[in-house]
Simulated assay, not measured.
Amino acid sequence: MMFEPTRLNKKVSLGAQSANSVADTADKDGSILALPVGSIEQHGEHLPVMTDTLLANSVTTKSAERVASKIPVTVAPPFWSGYSPHHLSLGGTLTGEFSTLLDLLCDIAETGLENGFDALLLVNGHGGNTPLINAAVSEIGSAHPDVEILGLTYFELIADLVETVRKSGVGGMAHGGEFETSLMMYLYPKLVDTDNMAATYWNEHYEQSGDDLVVSGPVSVYRPFEQYSETGAIGAPEVANADTGEQLFDGVTETLGNLLVEVHQKNA
């Protein structure tokens, strides 16, 4: 049966709870506040601009659901604006200045932690946010030395699984490619336009740069995305399918759920 993504889950979603319920969870030993961080940016002609936010939120919520009977965890509403200046020329993109987004993440963390949570986990769903998440972890952690502050990019958790389930070669699981399209086909199939899936494999000039969502390199380079692809999609969305998406979703939510348990145990 197809997984129906939960927008708000009464047990783990902060937005579905009363203030007292949030406080009750935060007061428990080893409590965790998880914040999905996405973006609003073009994803080619076949995926919606909210793809990164939708996926980060679904992954974080389902991961929390998996372990909510064991640990106190709350998922904040997703932080929907990411750092996406490289997508602006292709339209459909809402972004902010790096410093503005960093300040907002720190402000949200500051107020979220006032509820009494023992740990904060930023769950990122947009590659362009990686420096932002790293900076936020440092800034928030420095301001709250008694709280465990962590950040990650969810698709990096399952690099080994990706290699076993992918149908495309390296470069096929990039922006709007097989990975994201498969997840969207599983979670939000009505939002995928399978008649308009034109994309170009990721082919970066520098050998030491990244070639895929899960194949990174030490060299970082800035390019507007139209230099990679006319449609803005990079990879092989044409080989994506819901079965692959289900395997990826199950794998990443199990892995992230296990990490949540580990964070709770360390801070209880």
Rank of each mutant, 00 (worst) to 15 (best):
L33N: 03
Q17M: 15
K266L: 11
L54D: 02
K11I: 14
E204L: 08
T200M: 11
L187Q: 06
T111H: 15
T25G: 03
A240L: 08
S142V: 10
L191I: 10
D160C: 04
E65F: 04
E207Q: 14
L101I: 08
L33T: 04
G217W: 03
T244I: 15
N124T: 04
A23G: 11
Q17H: 06
S142A: 12
S182E: 06
L102I: 09
S18A: 08
E41N: 00
S220T: 15
P218W: 12
A242E: 14
P5S: 06
N267I: 12
V137S: 02
V214N: 11
H144A: 04
S69L: 07
L90E: 01
M185Y: 08
V75H: 00
Q227H: 14
N196F: 11
L183P: 10
G96S: 06
Q227W: 11
D160L: 06
V37G: 01
G172S: 11
L105T: 03
E163W: 10
S84L: 03
G251P: 08
L105I: 09
N258L: 10
V192K: 07
G257I: 07
V22K: 01
H87G: 00
T51C: 02
E230T: 14
G172I: 12
A68T: 10
L102P: 07
L187K: 07
H86Y: 05
H43E: 06
R66T: 11
V214W: 13
N258P: 08
A198T: 15
L35N: 02
T181D: 06
T51G: 00
D24T: 15
L157Y: 10
D103G: 13
G92K: 03
V221N: 12
K10D: 13
H175T: 03
V12R: 03
T25D: 05
R166D: 05
G141E: 00
L14W: 14
S18F: 07
V165M: 02
V147I: 15
M50V: 13
N9C: 11
E114I: 08
G151V: 02
A56Y: 05
P131K: 05
D29C: 09
G232C: 08
L260Y: 03
A136W: 00
L33V: 09
D27R: 15
G151D: 04
N258F: 00
L213R: 09
T244H: 10
Y83T: 02
D243E: 15
Y201W: 08
M1D: 14
E246I: 07
L259V: 06
D107A: 13
H264N: 15
V162Y: 09
D27C: 13
I71M: 04
L259A: 01
T181R: 05
T200D: 14
V162M: 13
Y83E: 01
L120G: 05
P72H: 00
S89C: 10
L161K: 10
S63N: 01
N203L: 09
A240I: 09
L90A: 02
L152F: 02
W202V: 14
A236R: 14
S168Q: 06
T100F: 09
K70V: 06
N9Y: 09
P145M: 01
G116N: 01
I234K: 05
S39A: 15
D212S: 09
V170D: 11
S168M: 07
E246H: 09
F249H: 07
V67I: 10
E204S: 13
N129C: 03
T231K: 05
L122G: 01
